[in-house]
Design a protein around this nucleic acid. Sequence first.
DNA 1: ATGCCGGTTACTAACCGA
Length: 229
Amino acid sequence: MKIVTLNLRHGGADRVRRIADYLLENEAEIIVLTEFRENSSGALLTDRLTATGLQRFVAPAQDARKNRVALFAPSSARALPVSPEDEDAHRIVACEVNGVAIAGVYFAQLAQKATLFDYLNKRLPPLHEDVLVIGDFNTGLHYLDEPGATFACADQFQKMGERGYSDLWRRAHGEGAREYSWMSSQRNGFRIDHAMGTGTIPSRTVACYYDHDTRRDFTDHSALWVTLR
DNA sequence: ATGCCGGTTACTAACCGA
């Protein structure tokens, strides 16, 4: 099962054609898109992906310009209800598919991330024995996923470990590994796109890697690919 | 640790995003 997350950057605009080509050519079976917008770009992307038989789950928002998270999964997938704080309604969407629960997430800027972390770490009932939380966390570990210690909510990200979540990329590449999924205009790198798995997910992960070419080709984030056995 | 930058938009000023 091949899963990918990619931040579209402001909905993707006319880049969505190339983005759809990329996702389909690489045979993504489950797709989590962050900064998805319910506008004409979002509609084009939705048409391209659902034409292959995938169904769409999208986090709710009032405004079409709101950057939200969308999840595309096989037709057998079923929606899983989530109930975050109102201000995070557009930041999480979940489904059950092929015996696992997938939650797509798009965390806010700076300290505003805290409420969604609280929901994940304290209030969200176990969705399943095997849960994959994947998307743009906008944070990571100080001095490891970034050069310094500027990340907000790094402690809450780390606390996911106590909740049984394993950082699949770090598990595959080592405790001291460094790679960046986004780069600032000052050329500082940050690893902020993550896949966190519980239960049998870590042991079933046969590949977990970033594709940095997406930053060169059509967005400002690297894609994160996860293959589950 | 944002927004001086840069991208997007029921566009050309307002918004958003490390």
